[in-house]
Design a protein around this nucleic acid. Structure first.
Lengths: 183, 183
DNA sequence: CCAAACCTATCTAGCGATAGATAAATCACG
DNA sequence: CGTGATTTATCTATCGCTAGATAGGTTTGG
């Protein structure tokens, strides 16, 4: 059933974002859904397959949300605000950090396939922000600034989560948007 | 022997910074040192004890290094440069992210004792930077800016590590130090 | 000074729990 | 009936952790 599959992805994503890839087990997932662990293997033959599916869905949802939130945002400042909002939303909605902040930290302990998906996510993030920056900047300047912005949001998320204070991310985003150097 | 203990801390820290807390096992540590896992338990009765010892040593070394690098740095800009350098050093030296960036991400899957040690580390970081900022800023402004700086470095570290490009952290640090808003 | 007592560092062996994974049987339903 | 979904039952490997033993060093008391 599509329901079981989505529930599996939901619980796996939640667990990975809360405690990390290695702390999510087939047995726990099965228990949470009231099914057997073998049934989880029916949907995802290997754990790597589960990881790939979670990253893929997360990334798709992320950029879909981003497109929607920024479609009526003509200026650079508005696009950046939309970008920050997606991050804030991700943290505040369910009190969990970005999936890729977590898996990115763990990336050296993951399969190369998973690691390359994470690289893709970060590169896509940076490129999205870079293309939202004003074209008065050079291509390299935009990339550098975009990287800076993504790094700040990712780091602020981890610190906010560790300190149990989501306001930290909000303050960081505000400073990014209001500093002279940001545009 | 103090040798075994230090070797254990070295390997545990390396493993935790590379792959995370859960991916470090007593057996692997023992194999790496050519001893038995029971002997690791002789030094650290529980895994939590090992985690605490690793965080404690890491934090001490970090702030010791910071004091040394900044003792001849009178200005805010010089102190911030010293701070960034400790981060760059940590990443470039052994190609691994900050211990607390990794464990901070995982913090919800750790014991509360470990989590509170991580909070301490981040708070100490933020307070150190805040007190290095010019006192023309208000206390709150300094905390906010300090948080921003620590978040950027932590996030840049994770992204640099995932993308396999340590230059990303260097560029992020340079932008922090040279932006008008930084001082 | 020497022997008994104790400590340090390590080992062998194994516990119960859990990990990811698989094959074969069963169920549900169009 | 047959296909898709799920279970039962199991495997191998590893996890953190502990008990009990041992060889070698250190301390201490008669």
């Amino acid at each position: 059933m599509a329901d079981t599959l989505n529930n599996l992805l939901d619980h796996a994503e939640a667990g990975m974002r809360e405690r990390g890839y290695h702390a999510v087990s087939f047995r726990d997932l099965a228990d949470e859904l009231g099914i057997k662990s073998a049934s989880v293997h029916y949907y995802f033959r290997k754990k790597e397959d589960l990881g790939i599916a979670v990253i893929e869905r997360y990334s798709n949802t992320f950029f879909q949300q981003l497109e929607e939130d920024s479609k009526d945002a003509p200026t650079s400042a508005q696009k950046l605000a939309a970008f920050c909002n997606v991050y804030k939303h991700a943290l505040e909605e369910n009190n969990r950090i970005c999936l890729c902040a977590m898996l990115g930290a763990e990336s050296h302990g993951l399969t190369s396939e998973l690691a390359s998906r994470l690289q893709q996510f970060f590169n896509d993030n940076i490129n999205w922000v870079a293309s939202a920056l004003p074209d008065t900047l050079s291509a390299q300047e935009r990339i550098d600034k975009a990287t800076q912005i993504v790094a700040t949001l990712q780091g602020a998320m981890v610190i906010a989560n560790t300190l149990g204070d989501t306001q930290i991310l909000t303050t960081a985003a505000d400073q990014l948007l209001h500093s002279e150097g940001a545009l």
